[in-house]
Simulated scan of single mutants.
Amino acid sequence: MKTLALIFSLILTTAFCQAQDDTETYSITVKIDNALNDEGSMLIGLHSEDTFMKGQGLENIKSAIVDGKVEVTFDDLVPGTYAIMVFHDANDNGKMDFDATGMPLESYGMSNNPMLYGPPSFTDAKFILENDDLELLIRF
């Protein structure tokens, strides 16, 4: 009986491990082609609803700007709902700078390129990653 239980446990463990390995992952390539200049760097964050507008994303990439353009790729992502936030950190201080009234001093953009007159929401920028790699063009 113990041998039968052990064999059954091994079969279930093997099946579970294989099921975990079969999870497809995808990539998201983010392109920006209209940076105002090549000063500083571009900070790109991949966000979930829980991290959006609350600091660091699930993954973050810092990239140089060449001829006003940037292209980065987030790899090995499981299907889900995400948003991308980007800002041009012109002075390379690692944070978004604001004037005395709270208006951003540095260019920014997000997935879906919404035109907003206030703070962005996750709903404005969200997209679904499923069944294929994505390429997003983000405009400032």
Rank of each mutant, 00 (worst) to 15 (best):
N131I: 01
D92N: 15
D33C: 11
D89V: 03
D97F: 08
I65F: 02
S63V: 05
K31M: 10
K69T: 08
L134A: 08
L105Y: 03
L134K: 13
G102C: 10
A5R: 14
M53V: 03
G80S: 07
E59I: 02
A15M: 13
A83Y: 08
Y82V: 02
S9G: 09
C17V: 10
P104N: 06
N131Q: 14
L10N: 13
H47T: 12
T51V: 12
I11M: 07
C17H: 11
S9V: 09
D22H: 13
S41P: 01
T23R: 15
A64L: 09
G102A: 10
G109D: 03
D21W: 04
I11K: 02
T81Q: 15
F122I: 10
K126Y: 02
E49D: 12
F127L: 09
L77Q: 01
K54M: 05
N93I: 06
E130Y: 11
K62G: 02
L6R: 14
D21P: 05
M110N: 03
L6W: 08
T29Y: 03
T29K: 13
M42L: 15
T25C: 04
G109T: 07
F8S: 13
N34S: 13
L46V: 02
F8E: 03
H88R: 02
L129M: 12
P104E: 04
G55D: 01
G45C: 06
L58R: 01
N112R: 13
F127M: 11
Q20P: 05
T73S: 14
N112V: 14
D75M: 07
N93M: 06
L43R: 14
S41Y: 04
H47I: 02
D76A: 12
E130P: 00
T14N: 09
D38W: 05
A64V: 11
I28D: 00
Y26E: 03
F8G: 00
F140M: 10
T73V: 11
E130M: 02
A64W: 01
S107A: 15
E49R: 13
P120Y: 08
K95N: 09
M42T: 09
T29V: 00
A90D: 14
A19W: 04
A15Y: 14
E130H: 11
L136W: 05
E59S: 04
H88W: 04
D67N: 09
G118L: 11
I61W: 07
T3W: 08
F87D: 03
